[in-house]
Design a protein around this nucleic acid. Structure first.
Lengths: 137, 137
DNA sequence: GCGCCAGTTGATAATGATTGTCAAGAGCAT
DNA sequence: ATGCTCTTGACAATCATTATCAACTGGCGC
């Protein structure tokens, strides 16, 4: 009952539901924090899974392109996290990397007004908040 | 009359105003777009300046730490741009990399309200808009 | 003016995340 | 089952960035 929807999500993204992709998506599914390709690879290997580093990179990138994952830049590497498909912003804990999704009409309004004032045609925007969550304090 | 204030800015940041640092800060001063260390190094060399790549990296990082430059992540490398010292947001042209600074009380309000609602202690935030400027359209 | 020395520089090597390669392996429609 | 295309993964290659370390220099005290 948990494998089915994951496999479907992959199909919807035009990706074959292979054993490796399922294990990546599966471990991302129940995780509140963002993780790097390197770390996820080590974790999966540690848990006994057989998957190559290259595949982890490819899978994460493909899932992000399909809009199933958000990408963050942490230090000089990128971290991924499962995310909803509608537009949203983030509240990130700098200690445990937990990420909460936020929606915000206020931000959207600001984006368009500010861009209009400067004669820009909006192609995208990003608004994230960083902090320490209640558990980490 | 343009060298003096630049040198002073360096002193204020606790950095000796050396020939190399002056040339970096100087070329950043009259530039509306964000530039990477690699590109800036090539440019300075091309203009006849004598400066090492390592020094360009160190100088840009030091100036960013001192709050004189903003850092952007473009593809997988970081680009720098001179900036004001008060908190602000950005409007970035994805074609020519021109950057305009914005201030926005709306965003600050949203940040604190959203963080409070989730029990986070705010340590920082970032809100940038991407688009195409009027000249590039 | 001069020497001193902590702060700087820069050629080069090292690092480390990410991507390219390509032969072997695995879904899935027929 | 068979074939064909999509995937995989060990390994090599990239490439931005950082570490090294000996040579250099700004500027303060004399």
């Amino acid at each position: 009952m948990t494998v089915r929807p994951v496999a479907q999500a992959l199909r919807d993204a035009g990706l074959r539901p292979t054993r490796q992709r399922l294990s990546v998506l599966q471990s991302l599914r129940d995780r509140p924090d963002a993780v790097t390709a390197q770390d996820l690879h080590a974790e999966l290997r540690g848990a006994g899974a057989s998957i190559g580093l290259t595949t982890v990179y490819r899978t994460l990138t493909a899932l992000a392109d399909a809009g199933l994952l958000d990408v963050f830049t942490r230090d000089s590497e990128q971290a991924f996290r499962r995310c909803g498909t509608v537009h949203h912003h983030h509240l990130v804990c700098e200690t445990c990397n937990k990420v909460e999704e936020l929606s915000a009409a206020e931000v959207e309004d600001w984006v368009h007004h500010a861009a209009d004032r400067h004669g820009f045609e909006v192609t995208g925007h990003r608004a994230d908040i960083f902090g320490i969550c209640s558990e980490c304090r």
